[in-house]
Design a protein around this nucleic acid. Structure first.
Lengths: 216, 216
DNA sequence: TCCCGTTTGTGAAAGAGATCACAAGAACAT
DNA sequence: ATGTTCTTGTGATCTCTTTCACAAACGGGA
């Protein structure tokens, strides 16, 4: 089957899945067309069909795609048929928010551990998870088979935390610290930098914005 | 000068800027080569040069780029010579975390207001900002000239919140709710969905990971 | 001044991703 | 059965992005 799937395609697949889950659970729709999916995920019908065609043919001509079955296919493709165990490194503001984040569970992720270097936070119960000291990180990662680490530390501690996570067996990292992480080959990293996104918005406002149209 | 700058280019510019600020403030370096910047932002030297060349020529051949001046240029390009006023909609876990997020101020963003629909949260002081009821949203946006709204509500309230923000004059939205927002033309939206990113990591783990390069 | 090592800026080539356009398949009415 | 309408799946095309490759510029040393 398909070999090289681009990151942008994977991103869109994930959006399709998000929408399919809504359609299935909330709106009780049983079929959806590529045009419908495109509309509600911000892309085009052709793009939807092309994306899906890399993995097989899931629709019926003239009818569209069966919501439930396509949802399951996408879960399969994205590797979401298993639940994933996640650990949060850094139990400050962002870390705490993530530990209480309601959408993880229903989307297949279990936050099974939290760590912090600050003595005063250790032992706290955040969203049902006890904050542990870094000294317990390696053992916990191994015991609980944590595959994904979420870095929610300040910039200064981020690289070091990432190193520890990788050393303890993490194979993927979601990084909230506004710094580029160096990781060994084979470790996947995705970055979520709020100010980076805000800056992108500023760019659009200062260029596309005032000078785009003569609308005022 | 340059006409159409792609979103990926803008993203990289923002990363260059992030790195330049580190070099300037923390590491006290006064020049940096395209190769150096590339290295620490995860791209290639040619890409750095091409990106910058869209806006002018900022380096000295044989020497590299002056850190301070290039930083200022990028701030200019991205529209960061002014400070931006931001409001947070939704004062739950994520909203609170954002209100206490330390990197906004030093990066040019001021969170000047917070809103929630929950009576029990109104009046709270979160990170120096008082949580207001939605009824005060429009007036506050206008009075304080809020240009950017951060949506940190649950999914169900996200679209409605976005509508209110746009109605009150917001021209850009940073959306943390895992749902696609519909906004009028001219309003910029960026989405930050944690589970979407996690799913991307899962895809890499299940495909690229175990079976990196074998035949199938 | 002239040479040498270095690094930028940029056209040209290559590569990737998105869009087009249409034949093929499916349901349904007559 | 046949025609009509709808929508998928996909080669071909087009557009955008990245990479390549090299001349031009700079600083320093002799």
């Amino acid at each position: 089957m398909a070999r090289k799937i681009s990151e942008s395609t994977v991103r869109r697949l994930s959006r399709y899945l998000r929408r399919l889950r809504e359609l299935d659970a909330r709106e009780r729709r049983s079929v959806v067309s590529s045009a419908g999916l495109a509309q509600s995920t911000g892309t085009t019908a052709a793009q939807v069909r092309k994306d899906l065609s890399h993995f097989g043919s899931f629709g019926k001509r003239g009818q569209g795609y069966p919501v439930r079955a396509l949802r399951e296919q996408l879960e399969e493709i994205l590797g979401l048929t298993q639940r994933w165990r996640v650990a949060v490194l850094g139990a400050g503001k962002i870390g705490s928010a993530l530990l209480g984040y309601g959408y993880f569970t229903q989307r297949g992720f279990d936050v099974v551990a939290a760590f912090d270097s600050d003595q005063s936070r250790i032992g706290l119960d955040l969203g049902g998870v006890r904050v542990q000291p870094l000294s317990e990180l390696k053992r916990t990662f191994e015991d609980r088979r944590v595959a994904i680490a979420i870095i929610a530390t300040p910039v200064e501690a981020a690289q070091q935390s990432a190193d520890m996570a990788v050393g303890a067996g993490a194979r993927a990292i979601l990084n909230f610290a506004p710094v580029k992480l160096d990781v060994p080959e084979g470790v996947a990293v995705r970055e979520m930098d709020v100010t980076l996104e805000l800056e992108g918005l500023c760019y659009m406002l200062t260029t596309g914005g005032p000078a785009a149209d003569d609308t005022e």
